[in-house]
């Protein structure tokens, strides 16, 4: 007869525990190898004045009861899905993300093209601090349907495209955004507020893309003409608590 205590300990020890890392250093170079699958998510901890946040490397914050978004990167860009869909679509995140990618392949061109519609909307919205770039030479908001707001900010030759997606009131979602030429150099950046962005670079150069999930919202920012430090400073200046 087997000993239950010994066997149970062995079974529990076999449960994969996420790797724990402190704040990811900016500029760490690594090619994206694809999602590692369950059991290898990173938990990033950032020390904040007066407190500490331990943030999942998926860009989320402590559970609030919302079907939290999962953001992953691949060689093309970002894919997002809510956790409930990740469980119900074949029970694996891979299947769920594959489905989202196929669906979004049709949508990506439309989302990246210039949308001429413009509506006035009231919703939480944050943006980078203009004083960091000496003021915006162009500031434009576009409502792309009920769930998406696109903000275009220009400071001379430099540009930020800020996509804000609102999934409140939805049962679930799956979304993907692809960048021409692909992306590389996946890394994390955690702000002093404790929110963690996933960052990637365009392979063709010149752009940094950042993604974060906050409450019911997903934010994807495309920085053109900005360096790593400038991008981090701009991300740092954005108050994401408005989305909670």
């Amino acid at each position: 007869m087997k000993n239950f205590r010994e066997s149970y300990r062995k079974a529990v020890d076999a449960i994969p525990v996420p790797e724990f890392v402190m704040r990811e250093a900016a500029g760490r170079k690594q090619k994206i190898g694809g999602f590692d699958g369950r059991g290898k998510r990173n938990v990033a901890a950032a020390a904040v004045a007066g407190g500490m946040f331990v943030i999942c490397a998926l860009g989320g914050v402590a559970a609030t009861g919302y079907a939290k978004s999962i953001i992953r990167t691949d060689e093309n860009g970002f894919q997002t899905i809510d956790m409930r869909n990740a469980l119900t679509q074949g029970g694996t995140e891979e299947a769920a993300f594959d489905g989202a990618q196929a669906e979004a392949a049709e949508q990506s061109e439309e989302k990246q093209s210039e949308n001429k519609r413009s509506e006035e909307v009231l919703c939480p919205l944050t943006e980078p601090d203009a004083s960091l770039v000496g003021g915006w030479t162009l500031k434009e908001y576009q409502s792309l349907g009920e769930q998406e707001i696109l903000t275009r900010l220009e400071a001379g030759e430099k540009r930020i495209l800020f996509h804000q997606y609102d999934y409140s009131g939805t049962e679930g979602h799956a979304f993907a955004i692809s960048y021409a030429g692909g992306v590389e150099n996946e890394r994390l950046y955690t702000t002093d507020q404790g929110f963690t962005y996933k960052l990637v670079d365009s392979v063709e150069g010149g752009e940094i893309h950042a993604a974060v999930a906050v409450g019911d919202y997903e934010l994807i920012l495309d920085f053109s003409g900005f360096g790593e430090e400038e991008t981090e400073a701009l991300l740092e200046s954005m108050d994401l608590t408005v989305y909670l």
């Binding site: 529990v12 500490m52 331990v54 943030i55 999942c56 402590a62 939290k68 999962i70």
Partner: peptide, 24 residues
């Protein structure tokens, strides 16, 4: 704490959230 949370919630995402909340 992760193993305790995982065994209670039976999924990694909830376990991560809970451990995060505990340390907070």
């Amino acid at each position: 704490l992760y193993r305790i949370a995982f065994l209670q919630m039976k999924n990694t995402a909830d376990a991560e959230d809970i451990v995060q909340e505990v340390f907070f």
